[in-house]
Design a protein around this nucleic acid. Structure first.
Length: 446
RNA sequence: GGAGAGGUGGCCGAGCGGCUGAAGGCAGCUGCCUGCUAAGCAGUUGUAGGGGUAAAACUCUACCGGGGGUUCGAAUCCCCCCCUCUCCGCCA
């Protein structure tokens, strides 16, 4: 078995598919100014001159090669006919070998240009939707709504690390012995709480919100990472399996979205709604010093994800629903939160529009991200070749969306901090008690 | 790890050097017919990229798992790789 072969960034699965990018190459060709200004709002500049020269070079090479091929094909058919009639074809076959050689070199050159074009285009992020606020960083993200009242504490509320360690349910010291910084180890009621949260969230999304549960692989091929946009640009954020073309998933979005790569979906089946629990693995490169302690920013954490495949017409309605489904988790648990709309400068690479849900953390005295819900429009569908067939029509790219519903570790943090009691215990939200053997309160030694 | 079988269009499934983008079937679309949620008949329907057009029409190229080779010409022959299935072994 040869697992070591590097997957091509340009081939998905077994197919070589090199002409799907962030947007229609024709659109970029015909509306460079629009692309430029919309990307500028995300503080991304593209070298359109480079694009233009590569694009033109490629087309010139194609034209020449293809006309040679056309001539060669015509002659070949003639030869076939003559041979069938028992005649000699020697005279018209003259020079064909030379033409073939010329074609070969033109094709090779075209491929080189094509790769340069791919390299250029695969690094261009999605274009923001018109409704996305313009801004350069998180400070420009408008608050869309706020839910719940942060509880007043009569004492200075503790952070989750302290609460957890005192209760003996979080053990960062031992996690460090095993795996180093940014790993965590849950014990007793802590482990049970995490497990309960996973089950609670999955049950809510399947039974109440109608999502189909998926339990996908936690490692995927590089082509899947290209499909959702993690590669090629963000390789440094991912854990790669040595000697394999596989990566540990940074989110369930990757396997679940790529589930339908190279497929043509039935329009009547849309929207497809999936929910999946997976651990997530992230290098967190460049976040040195931030949230070093605790569960907030780990190399491995659990998350329940929501993923949708929709038509272009309905994707923004579906985004609102998905967001609301994610919020519901916090509402049922009784955790105060707010929703912000990410501005152009703060959005991820693949997203056309993103809402973040931020939960209130009394220990830190601020709202912290606990979910990110995005519409990717065609961006991922183009890369992963996910289409659907409209009634009687030609296949079109589907729209993909996803959001955390929710990050389990951070939800656990929110529960510990929001429901901590002066005596050091933590009240278990009612909705979770059924998942924890009826446990109502976590006390030391539980 | 060992031994076989196989990967063809939206799906099923023929083809095994030339006029095959690919028979046949299903599904879809368009007519006709039928007074009823059906059936019949006829026609039609791949994807991508060039050129062309106001848009079409039209035209060229590529694509039968991926890559390379042989040949004037390959879905068909050769080599390498990937994947799927069956049996044996091993294992959770």
């Amino acid at each position: 078995m040869n697992r070591e072969k590097e997957g091509s960034f340009y081939g998905h699965g077994q197919r070589s598919r090199s002409r799907y990018y962030m947007l229609d190459i024709k659109y970029l060709r015909e509306n460079p100014a629009d692309v430029e200004t919309r990307l500028a709002s995300r503080a991304v500049s593209v070298d359109l001159r480079l694009f233009k020269s590569l694009d033109e070079k490629r087309r010139a090479l194609l034209t020449e090669a293809e006309s040679l091929k056309a001539r060669k094909n015509a002659v070949s058919i003639e030869i076939g006919k003559l041979k069938k009639e028992g005649k000699d074809a020697g005279t018209i076959a003259v020079g064909l070998q030379e033409a073939s050689d010329r074609i070969k070199s033109l094709d090779a050159e075209a491929l080189t240009v094509q790769k340069a074009l791919d390299d250029f285009l695969l690094y261009i992020p999605n274009l923001p939707h018109q409704s996305v606020p313009i801004g350069s960083d998180a400070n420009a993200n408008p608050v869309v709504r706020t839910w719940g009242e942060p509880k007043e504490f009569v004492y200075p509320p503790l952070e989750h690390t302290e609460i957890g360690e005192r209760l003996g349910i979080l053990d960062f010291e031992r996690a460090g012995k095993l795996s180093g910084a940014r790993f965590s180890l849950l014990k007793g009621a802590g482990a049970l709480l995490e497990r309960g949260l996973i089950n609670f969230m999955l049950d809510l999304h399947t039974a109440k919100h109608g999502y189909t549960e998926v339990l996908p692989p936690f490692m995927v091929k590089s082509s899947a990472m290209v499909g959702t946009g993690q590669l090629p640009k963000f390789a440094e954020d991912l854990f790669k399996i040595e000697g394999w073309d596989h990566y540990l998933i940074p989110t369930a979005e990757v396997p679940v979205t790529n589930m339908h790569c190279d497929e043509i979906l039935d329009e009547a089946a849309l929207p497809l709604c999936y929910t999946a629990y997976t651990p997530c693995f992230r290098k967190e490169a460049g976040s040195y010093g931030k949230d070093v302690k605790g569960l907030i920013r780990n190399h491995q954490f659990n998350k329940v994800e929501l993923v949708k495949f929709t038509t272009p017409e309905t994707s923004y309605d579906e985004l609102e629903k998905l967001l609301s489904n994610a919020e519901e988790v916090l509402r049922v648990l009784g955790l105060p939160y707010r929703v912000v709309s990410l501005c152009t400068g703060d959005m991820g690479f693949s997203a056309a529009k993103t809402y973040d849900i931020e939960v209130w953390l009394p220990g830190q005295g601020k709202y912290r991200e606990i979910s990110s819900c995005s519409n990717f429009e065609e961006f991922q569908a183009r890369r992963a070749n996910i289409r659907y067939r409209p009634k009687g029509g030609k296949p079109r790219f589907a729209h993909t969306l996803n959001g955390s519903g929710l990050a389990c570790g951070r939800t656990l943090v929110a529960i510990l901090e929001n429901f901590q009691q002066e005596d050091g215990s933590v009240i278990v939200p009612e909705a979770l008690r059924g998942y924890m053997g009826g446990l109502e309160r976590i006390r030391r030694g539980a």
